[in-house]
Amino acid sequence: MKQIKYILISLLFCTVSYSLIYEQPTTQAFSAQVLERGAFGDDVIELQARLQYIGFYKSEIDGKFGYSTYWALRNFQEKYGLPIDGLLGENTKKKLVSVSEFDKKFVHEQINKGNSFTYYGGVDLEKQVKNKKEESTNMQLPPQYSEKDLKLIANAVYGEARGEPYEGQVAVAAVILNRIEHADFPNTVSEVIFQPLAFTAVADGQIWLEPNERAKEAVLDALNGWDPTENAIYYFNPDTATSKWIWSRPQIKKIGQHIFCA
């Protein structure tokens, strides 16, 4: 009798363990977050990779939940009879995990190396890695700006104002953007930044220094609309400025070492 009891308990234990082990890949693959358009990060990388594995997603696997990912997810939901809402909820995750594969090591390795790659199922992974792509800032930006804009402005901000408070760094980025909008200045980021004698960092070569995350975050805030300068188009350091002309500009406010002017 005792033996039967042990056998039953062992069987029950095995069944529970098996069901747990069997269920794990479907629920533990993604985090518990419900993802939607605008999201960013590792869960989005997995979503894009899995969708690409089964042929629904054809764009770059970059961890940014934009419209390409959104339409691919909706198409997947439609094909598998799920509610078509473009949200990656629990049911969609389970279905997606059950019909696709995700080699996390391979995918993250390519992203970390900055490689251009795809992740289609049934194709040799090595054949899907192409040349190194251009540098990416890995940030989601308002539609009117590109990663190239962010990169160049961040270089200028870091070269010009890396010792300034955060507000002062956002302010320098805002001045560059205000100039683009201004009739007296060129219309593109590069033309504004490289305009002769416009920025000290360009003249002395500091424009080529690699910007830190703080400078990039400051630029991101400026691209999203923050302008601590209240519409300034010039700034100068009163301790080091040699131009008399700059003192004739209408001053707006001082942030850190810089005076911002209209």
Partner: peptide, 20 residues
């Protein structure tokens, strides 16, 4: 020379972004 001369090409601001 365009990058080493002191011919500052900027002029006074006439137009701001309308909303500001």
């Amino acid at each position: 020379k365009a990058y080493t001369e002191s011919d500052f090409p900027m002029t006074a601001s006439e137009t701001d972004q309308q909303k500001k």
